[in-house]
Structure formats: structure tokens, C-alpha cells
Simulated assay, not measured.
Amino acid sequence: MESGPAIFAGTAFTLFGAGLLVWTAARVRHRAPVAHGVDPTAAAVFATAFGAVLLALGVWCFGRV
């Protein structure tokens, strides 16, 4: 019964992390701002780092199942 929450959390983290990475890559590729009012390089690095952390956290949750 404890695998249900781990599957839900893993799915949520993985989808959000992957979506953030894809969105950031699309914004950078089109040379559009990732975040308004922030240095473009810092915003891209920050968003990419958080996307990778969330993706890794989702994979870790799936590993706990």
C-alpha cells in the first residue's frame, strides 16, 4: 500500500522536471527570456538545474517502489 504515494510523487516530479527542461530548452533555442527581469544566463542555468533535480527526484521515487 505504500507504493501508491511513491508512484504518484514519482510521476509528478518526473513530469514536472521533464516539462521544465523541455520548456527551458525551447525558450533558450528561440532566444526568448526564460524569466522576465532576470539575467538570461542565470535564469536558464537555474531552471535547468531545478528541472534536473526534479527529474532525479522522480527517478528516485520510482526506485523506492
Score class of each variant (00 low, 15 high):
A47S: 10
E2R: 09
A35Y: 00
D39N: 14
A6G: 02
T48H: 13
A9L: 14
S3H: 13
R64Y: 07
G10Y: 03
G19S: 03
S3A: 12
A6M: 14
A43S: 09
T11I: 13
A35S: 02
A26C: 10
L54M: 08
T41N: 04
A12H: 07
A43P: 01
A49G: 08
A42P: 10
G63C: 14
R31S: 10
A56Y: 08
E2N: 09
G63Y: 08
A44P: 01
L54H: 03
R64T: 12
L20E: 01
C61G: 13
T48K: 08
T14R: 09
P5N: 11
L21P: 00
C61H: 15
G51Y: 00
P33W: 02
V53T: 12
A6W: 11
R27L: 10
A42D: 14
I7H: 12
V28T: 13
L21R: 01
L15H: 12
A56S: 07
W23Q: 13
P33I: 01
P5Y: 12
F50D: 04
R64I: 15
P40F: 00
T48P: 15
F46K: 06
A35C: 04
F13W: 12
P40A: 01
A47C: 11
L54K: 04
A9E: 08
L20I: 04
G37V: 13
A12M: 13
